[in-house]
Amino acid sequence: MNRPISYDECNCFALRQAARHVTQIYERHLGQVGLTAAQFTILAKLARTPKLTMLDLADAMVMDRTTLVRAMKPLQRDGLVETESAEHDGRTFEFSLSKSGEKTFDRAAVAWRAAQDEFEEKFGRARAKALRSELFDITE
């Protein structure tokens, strides 16, 4: 008979618990601008790389398209993200920030910086940098 698995042995549980904790910090700050952490990351990606297709954006975000569509709907509804047909294929849509999206992103970046600083102050800047490196290695 296998012994019961303890939560402190489970990588997935530890990562999800930490992710919820960190997300709460970021959402407290980003909520002041009316964004969730997931929405902020979408805006940040589109600010750096406009005219992304849904597939390219989903790949970049490591999200399935259904989840991304749900996250994009409020951004499109609120006029933060624009959609246009791709030049090479009228059935493919590309996403970019609208002027309003750019302004919201600029305000959100200030809130994000406050969240980033809060986390790094509690966890340590060097440890946070090392943690990011390790976590990005998982998804590369």
Rank of each mutant, 00 (worst) to 15 (best):
S100H: 04
W112G: 04
K45G: 05
M61I: 00
V69A: 11
R77L: 11
A37L: 14
A37V: 13
T83G: 09
L43F: 00
T49K: 10
L46D: 03
V62K: 09
K103V: 12
D64K: 01
E94Y: 02
A58R: 01
A109C: 10
F40S: 03
E84L: 11
S96V: 06
T41C: 10
F95Q: 05
E102N: 11
L46N: 04
T67H: 07
E84Q: 10
E87M: 06
R77C: 09
A86C: 10
H88Q: 13
L75W: 01
S100R: 05
T41S: 12
L46G: 01
L57N: 00
T49W: 09
H88R: 10
A109V: 06
A111F: 05
V62T: 13
R65C: 04
P74M: 04
A86Y: 02
S98I: 08
R113A: 14
M72T: 01
S96T: 08
G90D: 14
A60W: 00
T67D: 08
L43W: 01
D106A: 15
D106L: 07
M63S: 00
T53Q: 02
A44P: 03
T67M: 09
H88I: 11
A44H: 14
Q76P: 01
L43A: 07
G79P: 03
L43N: 04
F95V: 00
R107T: 05
K73T: 11
T66E: 12
A108H: 01
R70E: 15
H88P: 03
R113W: 00
M54I: 03
S96M: 09
E82N: 13
L43K: 06
T92H: 05
W112K: 06
A37G: 15
K103T: 14
D56P: 01
R77S: 14
Q76K: 13
T36K: 15
L55E: 15
G79N: 09
A47Y: 06
K103P: 01
A44F: 04
L68D: 00
E102A: 15
D78M: 09
A47P: 02
L75K: 12
L55K: 10
A109T: 13
S85I: 09
S100T: 08
L46C: 08
V69N: 10
A108S: 03
D78V: 07
L55D: 12
I42F: 02
E87K: 04
F105E: 04
E102R: 10
P50V: 09
P50M: 10
A37C: 15
A71S: 13
L55M: 11
D56W: 09
L46K: 11
S96F: 02
D89A: 12
D59A: 12
A58H: 00
V69L: 12
R65E: 15
R48F: 04
R91H: 06
L55C: 08
W112T: 05
L97I: 05
K51Y: 04
A86G: 08
R113T: 05
R65D: 07
R113L: 08
E84W: 04
P74N: 05
M61Y: 00
E87V: 07
G90A: 14
V81G: 01
G101A: 14
M61N: 00
T36V: 11
S98K: 03
L43M: 08
R107E: 08
R107K: 11
A86F: 02
T83L: 15
V62H: 14
V62N: 13
L97E: 03
K73P: 00
A58P: 00
V62Y: 05
T36R: 14
